[in-house]
């Protein structure tokens, strides 16, 4: 939920006069990623803070500030090619300023989402390293301060997620599960803050959830024991081979994909709903609708707060479940 988006939206509507307000670009701008961080000085000005653009082309690396290619359409002549932004994507352009569709460019820019990820990771590191040192200092004593706030969460992940699904093998997977849980949780929560340090949509970005689910895919399949593989390639009875083997192989991939879609869809949907409710004020073009919007937004924010915890929990729980199924030492009973 970002104020900057609305600041610009409002400006646009006032500029274009009677034209109806279209919430889609506003919402999409927030939900997606961008090469600059929109920053608003309340009631004064809106200023996009430029971020570094890092491009990998067939000729080599290019690094420059995103201020060179904003606003959208500005052409920047780099070392190897000329670039411009088109629908927030960096494209190579030819001398005439037309997009060269054949040239491929890989965009490794430090975008808004990457910066926000750096920020949340810094917060996670500061918080947990300090808590960890508190544990060392206060060994054997009752938890205190931040430690006593986080310990129930850590114990929750251990006792209610890891141990029930992984049994005695839980110790090995605890770091992964805890990291995933707190990474998703903090990004969900920061995403709910409408201005700096929030105002982004990281866990509602398919690239992030893709990486998280791929990690789970690798962890599950690299740790799968012989029971797990036997279950996939030697189903019982033998004449089910032609049906069961493809089904099982699909299920290997469908599980992480479900994880990916679930987190992405939940967080993005929440952001879209809240932004749509606020957009009502601009769609109706009257201030009188704002109490309705605010009531609904507060209500949705509370639901989103629940969803933030719930999705972190579900992602971690299902990860633990899938890993647990792969490492379980079970004995097939022949029925």
């Amino acid at each position: 939920m970002s104020i900057p988006a609305f600041a610009s939206a409002q400006k646009d509507t006032t500029n274009t006069g009677d034209k109806d307000f279209d919430p889609t670009p506003v919402i999409m701008e927030h939900i997606g990623d961008s090469h600059s961080w929109p920053f608003v000085f309340p009631l004064v000005a809106e200023k996009p803070i430029p971020l570094p653009v890092i491009l990998y082309t067939d000729k080599g690396m290019e690094v420059f500030s995103s201020s060179k290619i904003t606003p959208e359409g500005t052409i920047y002549a780099g070392t190897y090619y000329s670039y411009k932004l088109e629908e927030k994507k960096v494209k190579i352009v030819d001398a005439a300023g037309k997009v060269d569709e054949n040239a491929t460019v890989y965009d490794f820019s430090i975008t808004r989402n990457v910066v926000s990820m750096f920020m949340t990771i810094a917060v996670l590191l500061i918080v947990f390293l300090s808590v960890s040192s508190t544990y060392k200092k206060r060994a054997g004593k009752a938890p205190k301060g931040l430690q006593s706030f986080l310990e129930p969460l850590i114990l929750f992940v251990r006792d209610d997620i890891a141990i029930p699904n992984l049994g005695i093998k839980y110790v090995r997977f605890m770091p992964l599960l805890l990291t995933i849980f707190f990474f998703i949780l903090i990004n969900n929560l920061f995403g709910m803050i409408p201005f700096f340090p929030g105002g982004f949509n990281l866990t509602g970005n398919i690239a992030v959830t893709l990486v998280l689910s791929m990690i789970i895919l690798f962890v599950v399949n690299l740790n799968g024991n012989k029971h797990y593989w036997k279950h996939i390639f030697m189903p019982n009875p033998w004449w089910l081979f032609p049906i069961m083997i493809p089904v099982e192989i699909v299920s290997i991939f469908s599980k992480p994909i479900a994880l990916m879609i679930r987190l992405f869809a939940n967080i993005t949907a929440g952001h879209i709903v809240i932004l749509s409710l606020i957009s009502l004020i601009f769609i109706f073009g009257t201030l009188w609708i704002s109490p309705v919007s605010i009531v609904f937004v507060v209500f949705m924010d509370m639901i989103e707060l629940l969803v933030a915890f719930l999705q972190a929990y579900i992602f971690t729980l299902l990860s633990a479940l899938f890993i647990g199924m792969a490492v379980e030492e079970h004995h097939h009973e022949v029925i």
Binding site: M28, I31, G32, D33, I54, Y106, D107, F108, S109, I110, T111, N113, V114, M117, F118, I121, N205, I206, A207, V208, L210, V211, L212, F264, T268
Partner: peptide
């Protein structure tokens, strides 16, 4: 919305 960016995938993995 559902097309992952290579950049964000890369940075997320590294981070």
């Amino acid at each position: 919305l559902v097309t992952p960016d290579i950049g964000l995938v890369f940075w997320t993995t590294v981070c």
